[in-house]
Design a binder for these strands. Sequence first.
DNA 1: ACACAATACGGAGAGCTCTCCGCTTGACAG
DNA 2: CTGTCAAGCGGAGAGCTCTCCGTATTGTGT
Lengths: 207, 207
Amino acid sequence: MLGSVCGRRQLPVVGQPQPERADAARNRQKIIDVAARMIESRGADQLSLDEVAKEACVGVGTVYRRFGDRAGLVWALIDERERRFQEAFMSGPPPLGPGAAPAERVGAFLAGLVDRVVSQLDLFLLVELGSPKSRFGGPYRVHHTHLATLLAEARPDADPHFLADALLAPLNAHLISYQRDERGLTVEEIKAGVASIAAAVTARPAP
Amino acid sequence: MLGSVCGRRQLPVVGQPQPERADAARNRQKIIDVAARMIESRGADQLSLDEVAKEACVGVGTVYRRFGDRAGLVWALIDERERRFQEAFMSGPPPLGPGAAPAERVGAFLAGLVDRVVSQLDLFLLVELGSPKSRFGGPYRVHHTHLATLLAEARPDADPHFLADALLAPLNAHLISYQRDERGLTVEEIKAGVASIAAAVTARPAP
DNA sequence: ACACAATACGGAGAGCTCTCCGCTTGACAG
DNA sequence: CTGTCAAGCGGAGAGCTCTCCGTATTGTGT
Protein backbone atom coordinates (compact mmCIF):
# COMPACT_ATOMS: atom_id res chain seq x y z
CA MET A 1 0.00 0.00 0.00
CA LEU A 2 1.93 2.96 1.29
CA GLY A 3 5.56 2.96 0.29
CA SER A 4 7.70 2.84 3.37
CA VAL A 5 9.86 5.80 4.23
CA CYS A 6 12.35 3.63 6.08
CA GLY A 7 15.95 4.55 5.53
CA ARG A 8 15.27 7.61 3.45
CA ARG A 9 17.17 10.60 4.71
CA GLN A 10 15.32 13.83 5.29
CA LEU A 11 16.98 17.01 4.11
CA PRO A 12 17.92 19.28 7.00
CA VAL A 13 15.86 22.44 7.24
CA VAL A 14 18.04 25.48 7.66
CA GLY A 15 17.11 28.80 9.17
CA GLN A 16 14.88 27.48 11.95
CA PRO A 17 16.25 27.75 15.45
CA GLN A 18 16.16 24.21 16.72
CA PRO A 19 15.48 23.46 20.32
CA GLU A 20 15.36 19.81 19.25
CA ARG A 21 18.18 17.50 18.48
CA ALA A 22 18.64 16.73 14.81
CA ASP A 23 17.45 13.13 15.07
CA ALA A 24 14.38 14.22 17.01
CA ALA A 25 13.45 16.79 14.40
CA ARG A 26 13.95 14.26 11.63
CA ASN A 27 11.69 11.80 13.36
CA ARG A 28 9.01 14.41 14.03
CA GLN A 29 8.88 15.25 10.34
CA LYS A 30 8.87 11.61 9.29
CA ILE A 31 5.99 10.89 11.63
CA ILE A 32 3.98 13.87 10.41
CA ASP A 33 4.54 12.91 6.78
CA VAL A 34 3.52 9.32 7.33
CA ALA A 35 0.47 10.29 9.36
CA ALA A 36 -0.67 12.77 6.73
CA ARG A 37 -0.31 10.15 4.01
CA MET A 38 -2.14 7.52 5.98
CA ILE A 39 -5.02 9.87 6.69
CA GLU A 40 -5.24 10.88 3.07
CA SER A 41 -5.37 7.31 1.88
CA ARG A 42 -7.53 5.73 4.56
CA GLY A 43 -9.39 8.40 6.46
CA ALA A 44 -8.61 9.98 9.78
CA ASP A 45 -10.74 7.67 11.88
CA GLN A 46 -8.54 4.74 10.91
CA LEU A 47 -5.39 6.45 12.16
CA SER A 48 -3.44 4.15 14.46
CA LEU A 49 -0.34 5.51 16.12
CA ASP A 50 1.07 2.01 16.34
CA GLU A 51 0.87 1.74 12.62
CA VAL A 52 2.23 5.23 12.05
CA ALA A 53 5.24 4.26 14.12
CA LYS A 54 5.81 1.08 12.18
CA GLU A 55 5.47 2.82 8.84
CA ALA A 56 7.82 5.62 9.89
CA CYS A 57 10.35 3.12 11.25
CA VAL A 58 10.41 4.53 14.73
CA GLY A 59 9.38 3.03 18.01
CA VAL A 60 5.89 3.78 19.21
CA GLY A 61 7.46 5.46 22.23
CA THR A 62 8.99 8.04 19.93
CA VAL A 63 5.61 9.00 18.57
CA TYR A 64 4.21 9.50 22.03
CA ARG A 65 7.26 11.38 23.28
CA ARG A 66 7.00 13.86 20.38
CA PHE A 67 3.27 14.40 20.35
CA GLY A 68 1.94 13.36 23.72
CA ASP A 69 -1.08 11.52 22.39
CA ARG A 70 -3.30 11.04 19.39
CA ALA A 71 -4.79 14.50 19.66
CA GLY A 72 -1.32 16.03 19.84
CA LEU A 73 -0.32 14.45 16.56
CA VAL A 74 -3.55 15.59 14.97
CA TRP A 75 -2.93 19.17 16.12
CA ALA A 76 0.45 19.01 14.44
CA LEU A 77 -1.27 18.06 11.19
CA ILE A 78 -3.76 20.86 11.59
CA ASP A 79 -1.10 23.34 12.56
CA GLU A 80 -0.10 24.83 9.24
CA ARG A 81 -3.54 25.98 8.18
CA GLU A 82 -4.28 27.03 11.70
CA ARG A 83 -1.32 29.37 11.67
CA ARG A 84 -2.46 30.93 8.44
CA PHE A 85 -5.91 31.44 9.91
CA GLN A 86 -4.48 33.04 13.02
CA GLU A 87 -2.41 35.42 10.96
CA ALA A 88 -5.48 36.31 8.94
CA PHE A 89 -7.59 37.36 11.90
CA MET A 90 -4.77 38.95 13.85
CA SER A 91 -3.04 40.97 11.17
CA GLY A 92 -4.74 40.34 7.82
CA PRO A 93 -7.14 42.61 5.93
CA PRO A 94 -10.59 43.46 7.28
CA PRO A 95 -13.24 42.38 7.96
CA LEU A 96 -11.39 39.41 9.44
CA GLY A 97 -8.34 41.42 10.43
CA PRO A 98 -8.13 44.77 12.24
CA GLY A 99 -9.92 47.73 10.71
CA ALA A 100 -13.55 46.70 10.72
CA ALA A 101 -16.08 47.21 13.51
CA PRO A 102 -15.87 44.61 16.29
CA ALA A 103 -19.29 43.12 15.58
CA GLU A 104 -18.40 42.73 11.94
CA ARG A 105 -15.12 41.08 12.82
CA VAL A 106 -16.91 38.65 15.12
CA GLY A 107 -19.09 37.58 12.21
CA ALA A 108 -16.16 37.19 9.86
CA PHE A 109 -14.20 35.25 12.44
CA LEU A 110 -16.98 32.79 13.16
CA ALA A 111 -17.69 32.28 9.47
CA GLY A 112 -14.00 31.67 8.87
CA LEU A 113 -13.86 29.22 11.72
CA VAL A 114 -16.80 27.25 10.37
CA ASP A 115 -14.96 26.98 7.07
CA ARG A 116 -11.84 25.82 8.84
CA VAL A 117 -13.61 23.16 10.83
CA VAL A 118 -15.46 21.90 7.77
CA SER A 119 -12.33 21.81 5.66
CA GLN A 120 -10.56 19.50 8.09
CA LEU A 121 -13.60 18.02 9.71
CA ASP A 122 -12.24 14.56 10.40
CA LEU A 123 -9.15 15.95 12.06
CA PHE A 124 -11.20 18.18 14.32
CA LEU A 125 -13.43 15.25 15.19
CA LEU A 126 -10.36 13.40 16.36
CA VAL A 127 -9.12 16.36 18.39
CA GLU A 128 -12.42 16.56 20.20
CA LEU A 129 -12.01 13.01 21.41
CA GLY A 130 -8.74 13.89 23.11
CA SER A 131 -8.26 15.03 26.67
CA PRO A 132 -9.85 18.29 27.82
CA LYS A 133 -6.37 19.69 28.11
CA SER A 134 -5.62 19.28 24.42
CA ARG A 135 -9.13 20.37 23.54
CA PHE A 136 -9.12 23.67 25.33
CA GLY A 137 -5.41 24.29 25.13
CA GLY A 138 -3.55 25.70 22.15
CA PRO A 139 -5.77 26.91 19.32
CA TYR A 140 -8.95 27.00 21.37
CA ARG A 141 -7.32 29.41 23.76
CA VAL A 142 -6.22 31.64 20.91
CA HIS A 143 -9.66 31.67 19.33
CA HIS A 144 -11.27 32.29 22.66
CA THR A 145 -8.99 35.16 23.56
CA HIS A 146 -9.43 36.81 20.20
CA LEU A 147 -13.19 36.50 20.27
CA ALA A 148 -13.44 37.67 23.86
CA THR A 149 -11.41 40.75 22.99
CA LEU A 150 -13.72 41.63 20.13
CA LEU A 151 -16.79 40.99 22.23
CA ALA A 152 -15.50 43.17 25.02
CA GLU A 153 -15.42 46.03 22.54
CA ALA A 154 -18.81 45.30 21.07
CA ARG A 155 -20.61 44.57 24.32
CA PRO A 156 -18.75 46.09 27.26
CA ASP A 157 -21.62 45.25 29.57
CA ALA A 158 -21.54 41.46 29.19
CA ASP A 159 -19.05 38.81 30.26
CA PRO A 160 -16.90 38.46 27.14
CA HIS A 161 -15.21 35.24 28.23
CA PHE A 162 -18.38 33.32 28.73
CA LEU A 163 -19.87 34.78 25.60
CA ALA A 164 -16.85 33.67 23.61
CA ASP A 165 -17.19 30.12 24.90
CA ALA A 166 -20.85 30.12 24.08
CA LEU A 167 -20.29 31.33 20.54
CA LEU A 168 -17.48 28.85 19.94
CA ALA A 169 -19.41 25.90 21.34
CA PRO A 170 -21.84 25.49 18.42
CA LEU A 171 -18.84 25.31 16.11
CA ASN A 172 -17.62 22.03 17.52
CA ALA A 173 -16.85 19.44 14.89
CA HIS A 174 -19.20 16.79 16.21
CA LEU A 175 -22.19 19.08 16.09
CA ILE A 176 -21.36 20.45 12.66
CA SER A 177 -20.80 16.96 11.34
CA TYR A 178 -24.12 15.85 12.76
CA GLN A 179 -26.00 18.84 11.40
CA ARG A 180 -24.53 18.40 7.96
CA ASP A 181 -24.63 14.64 7.61
CA GLU A 182 -27.70 13.69 9.61
CA ARG A 183 -29.92 16.74 9.35
CA GLY A 184 -28.91 17.81 5.87
CA LEU A 185 -27.87 21.36 6.69
CA THR A 186 -25.49 23.00 4.26
CA VAL A 187 -22.39 24.82 5.36
CA GLU A 188 -24.00 28.06 4.25
CA GLU A 189 -27.01 27.43 6.44
CA ILE A 190 -24.78 26.73 9.39
CA LYS A 191 -22.85 29.92 8.80
CA ALA A 192 -26.09 31.88 8.50
CA GLY A 193 -27.33 30.45 11.78
CA VAL A 194 -24.09 31.24 13.55
CA ALA A 195 -24.18 34.75 12.12
CA SER A 196 -27.70 35.38 13.36
CA ILE A 197 -26.76 34.31 16.87
CA ALA A 198 -23.65 36.44 16.80
CA ALA A 199 -25.77 39.36 15.65
CA ALA A 200 -28.28 38.83 18.45
CA VAL A 201 -25.52 38.64 21.00
CA THR A 202 -23.53 41.64 19.81
CA ALA A 203 -26.60 43.86 19.40
CA ARG A 204 -27.18 46.51 22.03
CA PRO A 205 -29.56 45.19 24.63
CA ALA A 206 -33.11 46.36 24.22
CA PRO A 207 -33.88 49.43 26.35
CA MET B 1 -47.19 -2.25 31.89
CA LEU B 2 -46.48 -3.27 28.36
CA GLY B 3 -49.50 -4.51 26.48
CA SER B 4 -49.63 -8.00 25.03
CA VAL B 5 -47.44 -8.43 22.01
CA CYS B 6 -49.52 -11.09 20.24
CA GLY B 7 -46.64 -12.50 18.26
CA ARG B 8 -45.76 -9.15 16.82
CA ARG B 9 -42.11 -8.20 16.75
CA GLN B 10 -41.40 -5.15 18.84
CA LEU B 11 -39.15 -2.48 17.44
CA PRO B 12 -36.54 -1.27 19.87
CA VAL B 13 -37.70 1.97 21.45
CA VAL B 14 -35.24 4.23 23.15
CA GLY B 15 -35.88 4.39 26.85
CA GLN B 16 -38.33 1.51 26.77
CA PRO B 17 -36.83 -1.87 27.54
CA GLN B 18 -37.88 -4.39 24.95
CA PRO B 19 -39.11 -7.71 26.27
CA GLU B 20 -36.10 -9.51 27.67
CA ARG B 21 -35.57 -13.00 28.80
CA ALA B 22 -35.45 -13.42 32.56
CA ASP B 23 -31.74 -14.15 32.67
CA ALA B 24 -31.03 -11.15 30.47
CA ALA B 25 -32.98 -8.82 32.72
CA ARG B 26 -31.24 -10.20 35.76
CA ASN B 27 -27.85 -9.61 34.21
CA ARG B 28 -28.74 -6.08 33.10
CA GLN B 29 -29.64 -5.16 36.63
CA LYS B 30 -26.56 -6.79 38.08
CA ILE B 31 -24.36 -4.90 35.64
CA ILE B 32 -26.02 -1.57 36.37
CA ASP B 33 -25.71 -2.11 40.11
CA VAL B 34 -22.06 -3.05 39.91
CA ALA B 35 -21.24 -0.16 37.60
CA ALA B 36 -22.99 2.34 39.85
CA ARG B 37 -21.11 1.02 42.85
CA MET B 38 -17.79 1.13 41.10
CA ILE B 39 -18.35 4.70 39.95
CA GLU B 40 -19.33 5.77 43.41
CA SER B 41 -16.25 4.29 44.97
CA ARG B 42 -13.64 5.07 42.35
CA GLY B 43 -14.90 7.77 40.04
CA ALA B 44 -16.43 7.50 36.60
CA ASP B 45 -13.24 7.98 34.65
CA GLN B 46 -11.86 4.76 36.10
CA LEU B 47 -14.81 2.72 34.88
CA SER B 48 -13.61 -0.33 32.99
CA LEU B 49 -16.24 -2.55 31.40
CA ASP B 50 -13.89 -5.51 31.67
CA GLU B 51 -13.81 -5.03 35.38
CA VAL B 52 -17.53 -4.43 35.65
CA ALA B 53 -18.05 -7.75 33.91
CA LYS B 54 -15.72 -9.58 36.23
CA GLU B 55 -17.27 -8.01 39.31
CA ALA B 56 -20.78 -8.84 38.13
CA CYS B 57 -19.78 -12.40 37.27
CA VAL B 58 -20.81 -12.18 33.64
CA GLY B 59 -18.79 -12.39 30.47
CA VAL B 60 -17.63 -9.14 28.96
CA GLY B 61 -19.65 -10.01 25.87
CA THR B 62 -22.80 -9.81 27.96
CA VAL B 63 -22.04 -6.26 28.98
CA TYR B 64 -21.55 -5.19 25.40
CA ARG B 65 -24.61 -7.05 24.14
CA ARG B 66 -26.81 -5.30 26.69
CA PHE B 67 -25.44 -1.80 26.43
CA GLY B 68 -23.64 -1.57 23.12
CA ASP B 69 -20.65 0.33 24.43
CA ARG B 70 -19.35 2.36 27.32
CA ALA B 71 -21.57 5.30 26.54
CA GLY B 72 -24.60 3.02 26.42
CA LEU B 73 -23.96 1.77 29.92
CA VAL B 74 -23.44 5.30 31.15
CA TRP B 75 -26.76 6.39 29.65
CA ALA B 76 -28.43 3.59 31.54
CA LEU B 77 -26.97 4.99 34.75
CA ILE B 78 -28.12 8.48 33.87
CA ASP B 79 -31.52 7.30 32.78
CA GLU B 80 -33.54 7.56 35.96
CA ARG B 81 -32.85 11.21 36.70
CA GLU B 82 -33.16 12.00 33.05
CA ARG B 83 -36.66 10.62 32.98
CA ARG B 84 -37.64 12.72 35.95
CA PHE B 85 -36.23 15.80 34.23
CA GLN B 86 -38.13 15.03 31.05
CA GLU B 87 -41.37 14.67 32.96
CA ALA B 88 -40.71 17.97 34.69
CA PHE B 89 -40.35 19.99 31.52
CA MET B 90 -43.02 18.15 29.58
CA SER B 91 -45.80 17.99 32.12
CA GLY B 92 -44.60 19.48 35.40
CA PRO B 93 -45.47 22.87 36.89
CA PRO B 94 -44.38 26.12 35.23
CA PRO B 95 -42.06 27.79 34.51
CA LEU B 96 -40.33 24.55 33.49
CA GLY B 97 -43.53 22.84 32.45
CA PRO B 98 -46.43 24.13 30.34
CA GLY B 99 -48.15 27.31 31.40
CA ALA B 100 -45.42 29.94 31.28
CA ALA B 101 -44.43 32.07 28.32
CA PRO B 102 -42.11 30.28 25.85
CA ALA B 103 -39.12 32.55 26.50
CA GLU B 104 -39.46 31.99 30.21
CA ARG B 105 -39.67 28.24 29.72
CA VAL B 106 -36.52 28.33 27.60
CA GLY B 107 -34.68 29.98 30.46
CA ALA B 108 -35.98 27.53 33.02
CA PHE B 109 -35.16 24.59 30.79
CA LEU B 110 -31.58 25.68 30.19
CA ALA B 111 -31.02 26.42 33.86
CA GLY B 112 -32.41 23.02 34.74
CA LEU B 113 -30.19 21.35 32.19
CA VAL B 114 -27.11 23.06 33.58
CA ASP B 115 -28.00 21.70 36.99
CA ARG B 116 -28.50 18.25 35.56
CA VAL B 117 -25.16 18.22 33.77
CA VAL B 118 -23.34 19.51 36.82
CA SER B 119 -24.99 17.02 39.12
CA GLN B 120 -23.74 14.07 37.07
CA LEU B 121 -20.81 15.77 35.44
CA ASP B 122 -18.49 12.81 35.23
CA LEU B 123 -21.15 10.64 33.63
CA PHE B 124 -21.88 13.28 31.02
CA LEU B 125 -18.18 13.65 30.32
CA LEU B 126 -18.06 9.96 29.57
CA VAL B 127 -21.10 10.11 27.32
CA GLU B 128 -19.50 12.86 25.27
CA LEU B 129 -16.58 10.61 24.49
CA GLY B 130 -18.87 8.05 22.91
CA SER B 131 -19.87 7.82 19.29
CA PRO B 132 -21.80 10.68 17.70
CA LYS B 133 -24.74 8.34 17.47
CA SER B 134 -25.00 7.90 21.21
CA ARG B 135 -24.22 11.54 21.75
CA PHE B 136 -26.95 12.99 19.60
CA GLY B 137 -29.38 10.15 19.95
CA GLY B 138 -31.73 9.59 22.87
CA PRO B 139 -31.82 12.41 25.42
CA TYR B 140 -30.14 14.98 23.18
CA ARG B 141 -32.88 14.51 20.65
CA VAL B 142 -35.56 14.97 23.30
CA HIS B 143 -33.94 18.13 24.65
CA HIS B 144 -33.45 19.47 21.18
CA THR B 145 -37.02 18.85 20.11
CA HIS B 146 -38.43 20.42 23.25
CA LEU B 147 -36.24 23.48 22.97
CA ALA B 148 -36.91 23.90 19.27
CA THR B 149 -40.63 23.79 19.92
CA LEU B 150 -40.39 26.53 22.52
CA LEU B 151 -38.14 28.63 20.32
CA ALA B 152 -40.49 28.30 17.38
CA GLU B 153 -43.14 29.94 19.53
CA ALA B 154 -40.86 32.64 20.88
CA ARG B 155 -39.15 33.48 17.62
CA PRO B 156 -41.20 32.32 14.65
CA ASP B 157 -38.86 34.10 12.25
CA ALA B 158 -35.68 32.17 13.05
CA ASP B 159 -34.62 28.58 12.44
CA PRO B 160 -35.61 26.91 15.71
CA HIS B 161 -33.64 23.73 15.09
CA PHE B 162 -30.34 25.44 14.58
CA LEU B 163 -31.05 27.78 17.45
CA ALA B 164 -31.75 24.85 19.74
CA ASP B 165 -28.44 23.22 18.82
CA ALA B 166 -26.64 26.47 19.40
CA LEU B 167 -28.18 26.97 22.82
CA LEU B 168 -27.51 23.38 23.86
CA ALA B 169 -23.90 23.42 22.66
CA PRO B 170 -22.54 25.61 25.48
CA LEU B 171 -24.04 23.19 27.98
CA ASN B 172 -21.73 20.35 26.99
CA ALA B 173 -20.07 18.70 29.94
CA HIS B 174 -16.52 19.25 28.77
CA LEU B 175 -16.98 22.98 28.45
CA ILE B 176 -18.78 23.32 31.75
CA SER B 177 -16.16 21.26 33.48
CA TYR B 178 -13.42 23.41 31.99
CA GLN B 179 -15.14 26.65 32.89
CA ARG B 180 -15.72 25.56 36.43
CA ASP B 181 -12.46 23.81 37.20
CA GLU B 182 -9.95 25.76 35.12
CA ARG B 183 -11.46 29.19 34.91
CA GLY B 184 -13.10 29.24 38.29
CA LEU B 185 -16.64 30.03 37.16
CA THR B 186 -19.40 29.07 39.56
CA VAL B 187 -22.47 27.19 38.45
CA GLU B 188 -24.52 30.31 39.09
CA GLU B 189 -22.31 32.36 36.81
CA ILE B 190 -22.65 29.76 34.10
CA LYS B 191 -26.41 29.77 34.47
CA ALA B 192 -26.45 33.55 34.34
CA GLY B 193 -24.39 33.54 31.16
CA VAL B 194 -26.61 30.98 29.52
CA ALA B 195 -29.66 32.96 30.55
CA SER B 196 -28.33 36.16 29.02
CA ILE B 197 -27.68 34.44 25.73
CA ALA B 198 -31.08 32.84 25.76
CA ALA B 199 -32.57 36.23 26.44
CA ALA B 200 -30.67 37.82 23.57
CA VAL B 201 -31.75 35.08 21.22
CA THR B 202 -35.40 35.01 22.21
CA ALA B 203 -35.76 38.80 22.21
CA ARG B 204 -37.55 40.37 19.28
CA PRO B 205 -34.99 41.44 16.70
CA ALA B 206 -34.12 45.12 16.89
CA PRO B 207 -36.07 47.24 14.39
C1' DA C 1 -43.44 -33.64 29.55
C1' DC C 2 -40.65 -32.65 25.79
C1' DA C 3 -38.55 -30.80 21.74
C1' DC C 4 -36.86 -27.00 19.43
C1' DA C 5 -36.14 -22.32 17.98
C1' DA C 6 -34.82 -18.08 19.63
C1' DT C 7 -32.14 -15.79 22.64
C1' DA C 8 -28.37 -15.09 25.72
C1' DC C 9 -24.01 -16.51 27.53
C1' DG C 10 -18.71 -16.58 28.30
C1' DG C 11 -14.31 -15.57 27.37
C1' DA C 12 -10.52 -15.92 23.94
C1' DG C 13 -8.48 -12.83 21.06
C1' DA C 14 -7.61 -8.75 17.88
C1' DG C 15 -6.22 -4.39 17.96
C1' DC C 16 -5.71 -0.20 20.10
C1' DT C 17 -3.43 3.66 23.38
C1' DC C 18 -0.02 4.81 26.25
C1' DT C 19 3.99 3.85 29.87
C1' DC C 20 8.36 2.45 31.20
C1' DC C 21 13.16 1.73 31.21
C1' DG C 22 17.70 0.08 29.69
C1' DC C 23 20.34 1.22 25.67
C1' DT C 24 22.06 4.62 22.03
C1' DT C 25 23.30 8.96 20.00
C1' DG C 26 24.10 13.85 19.15
C1' DA C 27 26.19 18.19 20.81
C1' DC C 28 29.71 20.32 22.72
C1' DA C 29 33.75 21.53 25.88
C1' DG C 30 38.41 20.75 26.29
C1' DC D 1 39.52 14.12 18.13
C1' DT D 2 37.55 12.44 22.20
C1' DG D 3 34.93 12.05 26.58
C1' DT D 4 30.74 13.13 28.74
C1' DC D 5 25.95 13.02 29.51
C1' DA D 6 21.35 14.94 28.65
C1' DA D 7 18.27 13.87 25.23
C1' DG D 8 16.37 10.61 22.47
C1' DC D 9 15.33 5.93 21.16
C1' DG D 10 12.77 1.25 20.62
C1' DG D 11 9.63 -1.99 21.72
C1' DA D 12 7.87 -5.10 25.43
C1' DG D 13 3.99 -5.03 28.06
C1' DA D 14 -0.18 -3.44 30.80
C1' DG D 15 -4.64 -2.54 30.33
C1' DC D 16 -8.37 -1.17 27.73
C1' DT D 17 -12.63 -1.61 24.20
C1' DC D 18 -15.13 -4.34 21.46
C1' DT D 19 -16.02 -8.70 18.26
C1' DC D 20 -16.89 -13.37 17.40
C1' DC D 21 -18.70 -17.80 17.79
C1' DG D 22 -19.40 -22.33 19.92
C1' DT D 23 -22.17 -23.46 23.93
C1' DA D 24 -26.00 -23.06 27.23
C1' DT D 25 -30.50 -21.44 28.74
C1' DT D 26 -35.28 -20.05 28.24
C1' DG D 27 -40.00 -19.99 26.86
C1' DT D 28 -43.38 -21.98 23.89
C1' DG D 29 -46.18 -25.04 21.04
C1' DT D 30 -47.64 -29.65 21.13
